[in-house]
Write a protein that binds this DNA or RNA. Structure first.
Length: 537
RNA sequence: GCGGGUGUAGUUCAAUGGUAGAACGUCAGCCUUCCAAGCUGAAUAUGCCGGUUCGAUCCCGGUCACCCGCUCCA
């Protein structure tokens, strides 16, 4: 049975998991808001990650717990940080697309060759308008194209374009080609320009800025000097604080710094609900180690991270591991061990998979770059290795918190025609936004009063709901739809013998337990069902 | 960014160039001893802007958003 994403999106809105951002204004492409239940779910996943990384980090290969400390760095950093990281330089150039070949060029790499006779003394750039009115078509070439190739293509295109080519070309028998950068030519002439890899004019789009970082300005005045960026990844904040952490927290190589937070990318094309959005949340850990140990730690962290995703409920075949091909490696991972992804089969990627987490070997790219740009020494003096001085290498497990939340919802979404709601969310109890609902069988005081008492007791320890109104079936159904694993129902027997009914979300089975054992019951169920997770709380 | 599609209540759907309906959900009340029961009542919608028209939710244009396929994803 294939699950329709539309149904999931509808449920998310209907029950308060995820809303379109600025909904009442018609939304905003690439932005989503997390509703009352969505934020609980997301926080639960976030807290479990933090616990697995920072509070109780795993036991390392040598049998002792590894060292990881936390961090929460600013979203806006000195813009030089993004120059050093490579985010500013390589990706801020205006790009031109060819509609026909779908190729993409840097606008300053394409030259349009204007034809003129040697005796024509006009300056090409200053009289560009005249030149374009004299000849209907000029040709663009990528920087460095051989003159012979240019001449040949001109002959070919002109012969094809004009039946009376000879007549037109006659006065230009002696001609010169004058290259002009495409970015210097008004876009109104694009319809007269033939792209480098095509034969007909007008296929090139207007040059577009292609920097995926959001700009902002620090301070009251807006100028180039005050320009800054919203971070496109949380990782750099970790590298920027690497030295501070080392100097203040007594960690030794190898160790990790973990951070959870928002990141922003001005995606060309946000898609697929919250999967690719412009504002999203990352859970990243940078693991610093000696260059010789990267392989060991890469394998270690990959296993740990797979365990984590399985433990939070992605235990099915929908989870897959995949190594990046050389052609898709990031600038920082071109050397070294590359990147391996943990991927999830979302309904919208099915039968393919979408990235949930990447475990990358970032080499010493970032620290070296920041050392160069900042002038600060970032090498590590390792007393455990005879005071060897080296630049640590980094293994980075970088997970998407918002993507993970979406995967949890997709995985939990279970169609069941047999039950009144027709669907339920099969969340792991540790992840469920509500752990239990307290339901008096009727709204009468004799049921409502003990239910309220139980609710007040349980809410000290668990996220629980008290729901008194409407008939019991409706209330069960509502809890099914939001994925509450347990419902405790107070009825007449409760008054007699102090027991309540426990109703299990997945099986709909019921059993009676003593009311004063409910907290303990819940505690044990959470633990028993927690799989590889440590208790959630 | 390109091509295609879709926008009506919270959700899923009707209908119409002339007063926009339903189901479910929500809320209020009654009822109710375990799975959206029953009764009564209530609130809530034509994405936005413009054009054509006596009159537009419907026709046209633009825009925004969502979906599908490509592209992109440092």
């Amino acid at each position: 049975m294939t699950i329709d994403m539309k149904d999931i999106v509808a449920l998310c809105k209907r029950r308060g998991f995820i809303f379109p951002a600025s909904d009442i204004y018609g939304g905003l492409n690439g932005f989503w808001d997390y509703g009352p239940l969505g934020v609980e779910l997301k926080n639960n996943l976030r807290d479990l990650w933090w616990k697995a990384m920072v509070v109780t980090p795993p036991i390392g290969p040598d049998g002792t717990p590894v060292q990881i400390v936390g961090l929460d760095s600013a979203i806006i950093q000195n813009p030089k940080a993004w120059v050093a990281s490579g985010h500013v330089g390589g990706f801020s150039d205006p790009m031109v697309d060819c509609k026909e070949t779908k190729k993409r060029y840097r606008a300053d790499h394409i030259y349009v060759y204007i034809l003129k006779r040697p005796d024509d003394k006009r300056d090409v750039l200053e009289n560009i308008e005249e030149f374009f009115s004299e000849m209907p078509v000029y040709l663009g070439f990528v920087e460095g194209t051989e003159p012979e190739v240019i001449a040949k293509k001109y002959d070919k295109i002109y012969q094809k374009t004009f039946e009376n080519f000879e007549k037109i070309d006659k006065p230009r028998q002696e001609k010169e080609y004058h290259p002009v950068e495409l970015s210097k030519i008004s876009s109104k002439f694009l319809s007269q320009i033939v792209g480098p890899d095509t034969k007909s004019p007008g296929t090139l789009t207007e040059p577009k800025e292609f920097n995926l970082m959001f700009d902002t300005y620090v301070g009251a005045t807006q100028s180039e000097d005050s320009k800054a960026y919203l971070r496109p990844e949380t990782a750099q904040g970790i590298f920027l604080n690497y030295k501070n952490v080392l100097d203040s927290s007594r960690v030794k190589m190898p160790f990790g710094i973990a951070q959870i937070g928002k990141a922003f990318r001005n995606e060309v094309n946000p898609r697929n609900f919250i999967f690719r959005s412009r504002e999203f949340e990352q859970m990243e850990m940078e693991w610093f180690c000696h260059p010789e140990e990267v392989e060991k730690w890469r394998d270690f962290w990959f296993d740990e991270r797979v365990k984590f995703w399985r433990a939070v409920g992605l235990a099915s075949d929908n989870l897959q591991m995949r190594k990046h091909g050389d052609d898709e490696l990031s600038h920082y991972a071109k050397e070294g061990l590359g990147t391996s992804d943990i991927e999830y089969k979302f309904p919208f990627t099915d039968p393919d998979f979408g990235e949930l987490e990447g475990i990358a070997h970032r080499c010493d790219f970032d620290l070296t770059a920041h050392q160069e740009h900042s002038g600060q020494k970032l090498e590590y003096l390792d007393p455990a290795r005879d005071n060897e001085r080296y630049m640590p290498h980094v293994i980075e497990p970088a997970a998407g918190l918002t993507r993970g939340t979406l995967a949890l919802i997709c995985e939990a979404y279970t169609v069941d025609e047999a039950r009144p709601s027709g669907v339920y969310l099969n969340f792991h109890p540790a992840l469920a936004p509500k752990k239990a609902a307290i339901l008096p069988l009727t709204a009468k005081e004799e049921h409502a009063a003990p239910a309220t008492k139980l609710y007040l007791e349980l809410r000290e320890e668990f996220a629980v709901d008290l729901d008194i109104k409407q008939n019991i079936g409706k209330r069960y159904a509502r809890q099914d739809e939001i994925g509450t694993p347990y419902c405790f129902t107070i009825d007449n027997d409760t008054l007699e013998d102090g027991t309540v009914t426990v109703r299990d979300r997945n099986t709909m089975a019921q059993e009676r337990i003593s009311m004063d054992k409910v907290a303990e019951y819940l505690r044990e169920k959470m633990k028993a069902n927690a799989g590889g997770l440590k208790a959630a709380a």
